[in-house]
Computed example of a mutant assay.
Amino acid sequence: MKAVIPIYDICSLTQKREDLLISRFAPYLKSHRNLHLPHKHSFYHLVYFTKGNGSQTIDFQQVPVKSNQIYFMIPGQVHNWAFKGDVDGYIINFSVPLFQSFLLKANYLEELPFFRGIVNEAVIDIPADLQVKLTLLFEELIAETEQPKPFELDMVRAIMLQIFVSIARLGQHADSATVSSYNYTLLRGFQKLIEKNYATLKLPKDYAGLLYITPNHLNALCNDVLGISAGEVIRNRIALEAKRLLINNDLSISEIAGQLNFADNSYFTKFFKKQAGLTPEEFRKTTNSHE
């Protein structure tokens, strides 16, 4: 099936290796001008801007681009750039298995707040006291990959972990410190279950049962920590997937409704319009007009 939006793997962006790409951003951007159009990645992706202006769109949310900003993306998210003027910094693309084979805790990255696929948590302004350290760490990564040495990949992963932990420590992402460890674990469990089951399980009571808690407990937890109900968390994820599917013009509205297990087109259209403010057809036309 032909997709309107391309899906890139690391091999399609570099001839060097299939699991890792580390580069300064300006030459990377020069080599991949087509990435200003909407696209998906099959890998984890992050960029630290040391110079930049304009905007980018991640999963249909537009955010400004500026100096000393870093953003993180997980596989499957939709992305495009609209830069203004000169842009530079550092980019890392890495495969899903890169850390699974390195760390005993295979799902370590999923515990980091900026790798949850939530745009508001994944675009981060770096404070002045961390900017120099971060730049030095990225320069270390560049040096390691430009001049291969023994244990090169292990050193690269160790430096990347320093970057991840340094950013995870920032106060704006310390939600796990303000929520009890039990409730934090429950919330992460809920989010992971949604990711696996959003097409088939659409009610809070379904997830509450899998978590061995009451629907009221789950709803109170989501309201306290996220500011929205458990039902809204589920509906937001279904709507996001609908948007990702709608940008493929080879999929009919009926096929998309079927993939997301809606009983019929009218129910899907009513759901989507309530969540997105547009009908599926209107959203598709609006998205296509921006390409």
Results as ranks from 00 to 15, higher is better:
I213M: 11
S266Y: 13
F283M: 03
P97R: 08
L130K: 08
L193G: 11
H39Y: 10
L278Y: 07
N265Y: 01
N219V: 08
F272I: 04
P204Y: 02
Y28I: 01
F43W: 08
F94D: 00
D129C: 03
K274F: 09
R24W: 00
D175M: 10
D125P: 08
F164I: 03
A263V: 11
L221Y: 04
L29C: 05
V156T: 00
K30L: 10
A257K: 07
V96N: 10
A208S: 09
D175H: 13
F102K: 02
C222I: 10
Y267S: 15
Q61K: 08
K273W: 02
R33Q: 14
R235A: 13
N236H: 06
T57Q: 08
N183A: 14
D86G: 12
I247R: 00
A276S: 14
C222Q: 08
L46S: 06
D250P: 02
P97I: 11
E110P: 09
K66M: 12
D9K: 10
D129G: 00
G54M: 06
L35N: 05
Q69M: 11
G209Q: 00
R188G: 04
T214I: 05
F262T: 02
F272L: 07
V179T: 14
K40C: 15
A3Q: 12
S229M: 07
A177V: 09
S180Y: 08
L170I: 09
A168S: 14
I167F: 02
F43K: 00
A220D: 07
L103K: 09
I10T: 06
V225L: 03
Y212A: 08
R237F: 10
H79Y: 12
Q56F: 07
Y207W: 07
L46G: 03
A263K: 15
R116D: 09
N261G: 10
A168N: 12
L251Y: 09
I142L: 08
L29M: 07
Q259Y: 14
V132M: 12
E110K: 13
L103A: 10
I22E: 01
H41A: 03
F151E: 12
L278I: 03
Y8V: 01
V63R: 02
S101G: 11
V63F: 01
Q77V: 11
F114T: 01
K196S: 11
N183D: 15
D88C: 05
E111Q: 14
L170V: 07
F272E: 05
R157M: 09
H217W: 10
H45D: 13
F190V: 01
Q61V: 07
R237L: 04
F49V: 03
F114V: 02
L193Q: 13
L203H: 10
E232D: 14
L218G: 04
S166M: 15
K149Q: 12
G231K: 08
L187M: 09
L134V: 03
L210F: 11
L37P: 07
